[in-house]
């Protein structure tokens, strides 16, 4: 088990997401360091996959930029090595199961431990399909961060009970026709059910852009995950470090007031 749970102690965690090697190694290293210096409590680093079925168009485009830079699994580890020379910010990987599977679960989790990667978020590995990876994750102290979706229903308790690190609660924000208030009410109920069975922190992600949304959601969750909005800042170019820093500070500020 990693130290992820401690990150959430006495504060609301801000968890931004960037795609590794988007658009190159140096920029990714700089982006992660900037986020860490401006309020990010955990950084979620995406290892690109050719067919990211759980990701939206903004992240798909970032994956393509990374592939253009010839990203591969070892390049991503190299990026983390460079980050680790300057920062000990907690990092979790987001990727698809075929990436660690092909690398070899044992070797992959061992590299994670060596580089102080705290956890893995793997959208296509529901709890039923984690049994092959789990022994290696446990051996090397890497948490498998489970996802809970708006459709999880009776699965919520089962998933929460076996969770370590933190739980990624997928919001229905951004889904056509779902109003924010409705989404927040549903999320609130989901988190209440999680809290009844575990003290593992629950962070909300998906569809969060503005500091207002982040602030509202921070009243019901232990942390806020922001993906596309951060990746879009990288995509927009210009003074990316300045823009990322300001954005991170604004989110951190919005969620901290509520703490």
């Amino acid at each position: 088990m990693s130290n992820l749970k401690e990150v959430f102690a006495n504060k609301k965690a801000f968890i931004p997401f960037v795609v590794a090697d988007d658009p190159d190694i140096e920029t990714t290293v700089a982006n992660v360091l900037t986020l860490a210096q401006n309020g990010a409590d955990i950084v979620e680093l995406g290892i690109p996959f050719s067919d990211p079925v759980a990701d939206g168009p903004v992240i798909q485009k970032a994956d393509l930029r990374a592939f253009k830079a010839d990203v591969n699994t070892n390049v991503v580890f190299e990026i983390v090595e460079k980050i680790r020379q300057k920062s000990s910010v907690p990092i979790v990987f987001l990727t698809y199961l075929n990436i660690p599977f092909k690398y070899g679960y044992d070797k992959f989790c061992q590299r994670c431990q060596e580089l102080d990667i705290s956890g893995l978020v793997i959208p296509d590995a529901p709890i039923e399909e984690q049994c092959e990876l789990k022994p290696y994750a446990e051996k090397y102290g890497v948490d498998l961060i489970p996802l809970i979706a708006p459709t999880s229903a009776d699965r919520i308790e089962k998933i929460a009970q076996s969770a370590t690190g933190f739980i990624y609660v997928v919001s229905s924000l951004g889904v056509t026709g779902v109003r924010d208030e409705l989404a927040i009410q549903q999320l609130s109920e989901t988190i209440e059910r999680i809290k009844k069975v575990t003290d593992v922190p629950a962070a909300i992600g998906f569809g969060i852009h503005s500091s207002e949304q982040a602030g509202k959601l921070a009243t019901i969750a232990d942390g806020i995950i922001i993906g596309s909005a951060v990746v879009q800042i990288v995509a927009d170019g210009g003074d990316v470090q300045k823009n990322l820093g300001e954005y991170a500070l604004s989110i951190k500020d919005a969620i901290s007031v509520k703490a």
Binding site: D124, R155, I159
Partner: peptide
């Protein structure tokens, strides 16, 4: 085989 699919679809 198996069910390597996002959580969103598991109940369905």
């Amino acid at each position: 085989g198996g069910q390597y699919i996002p959580e969103t679809l598991m109940n369905e």
